[in-house]
Amino acid sequence: MHASTSAQAPVTVLGLGAMGQALAAALLDGGHPTTVWNRSAGKDEELVAKGARRAATAAEAVAAGPLTVVCMTDYDASQAVLEPLADTLRGRTLVNLTSDTPERAREAARWAAEAGIDYVDGSIMVPTPVIGLPDALILFSGTRSAFEAHEPSLRALAGNLPFLGTDPGLAAVYDLAMLNIFYSAYGGLLRSFAMAAAEGVTAADFAPFALEIGKIMPPIIEGIATDIDARTYPGAQANLAMMAAGVEHVLHAGRAKGVDMTGLEAVKASADRALAKGFGEQGFTSIFEVMRTDEPA
């Protein structure tokens, strides 16, 4: 059912945690008639005051329009709500913004296809205060025609809505890979602050220099991507053997001050495996060869 695709099309939101409330509020701000439902009572009061329609049941909420957006803790929670709604959802579009793994997204898509439901999976890449703003990023994958039909409504949620492909797991793939960068970098930054603090350097004094490292990363990311796709790892400027020695110096200094260096020790372990495979004269990016699986899933 690809109906009601105007900018003011009705939308249903299932799940009113902090993110679900932000999604519903953005839809209301965008002028969409918005129906809301949550498993536990009391989380819809502000939304109802803003004009949302409270549904007594999830089935009533889904029946209110052609597009249902669900955002819950994980796919166990979302599927527990959605599976009894298969008949009501049939012929409608389901956009699942619940965070989980790529395979869980694919399982949900298979269930939806068998039930005659147009399925789009999505990953929200911003915190709740950014929802609805032009800079907000939400990744999508799944049924392209359903995404395109309801894109005007989804634009109330975020200004940046890349559609990654028809594999419904792709949004989660990108999501988790991006979060790995975030959490790994966050941990590395905290470790650096700990190393500086161990030598009497305040976080405020070190922070501007941490920012300098951040500035050099964009071209490095682009270069790494080019090398990985070409499976060539030039090492003339800085080969793996030299870089691994640098990592060891950092580890030695941190350990000497009692800093937890676990994260960087994992990098060194990967570097050592790559060295053992003969990549010493190639670039640091050659570590990818011992991290990757032989073939994509």
Rank of each mutant, 00 (worst) to 15 (best):
V95R: 02
A18V: 15
P208R: 09
G187Y: 09
A207K: 10
T143M: 06
T93Q: 08
P129H: 09
S145P: 11
A7E: 13
R90H: 11
L14C: 08
Q8P: 06
R292N: 06
H249P: 06
M243R: 09
A41Y: 01
G246D: 03
P162R: 03
I224M: 09
M125V: 01
Y186F: 15
R53C: 11
Q237K: 15
A197Y: 01
P127W: 07
A241T: 11
V259W: 01
L85H: 12
L275G: 14
P168Y: 00
S286C: 08
A52W: 03
A194L: 02
E212L: 15
F193A: 01
Q237G: 15
M217L: 15
P134V: 14
A3G: 14
G246K: 06
A149G: 09
G283C: 08
L133D: 13
V259H: 00
P152W: 04
P66I: 05
V259A: 00
H252D: 12
Y233S: 07
V173D: 02
A266P: 03
P162T: 00
M243A: 14
F193S: 00
D294S: 08
R292D: 03
K268C: 07
L16N: 06
A58T: 11
T285V: 15
A196G: 14
G65V: 05
A49F: 09
G246H: 11
L47V: 12
A105Q: 01
L170M: 14
A26G: 11
I220N: 01
I228N: 01
M72T: 15
H150R: 07
D175Q: 14
F288I: 04
L211E: 10
I216Y: 10
F140L: 13
E248R: 15
A204V: 11
G187L: 10
A149V: 06
A115S: 12
A197G: 07
A7M: 10
P102C: 12
A196K: 02
A236T: 10
V81K: 05
P162H: 06
I287N: 06
N239G: 07
L251A: 01
M1P: 13
T101R: 10
V267P: 02
R54F: 03
E212N: 08
P102F: 06
T128L: 05
P33L: 13
L89G: 08
L275H: 05
I124F: 04
A58M: 01
D175H: 14
P234N: 06
E60R: 05
V173P: 03
K268W: 12
Q237T: 15
M217R: 01
V11L: 11
P10N: 02
G42T: 00
P218N: 10
A115F: 06
T202R: 00
A86M: 09
A271N: 09
L211G: 14
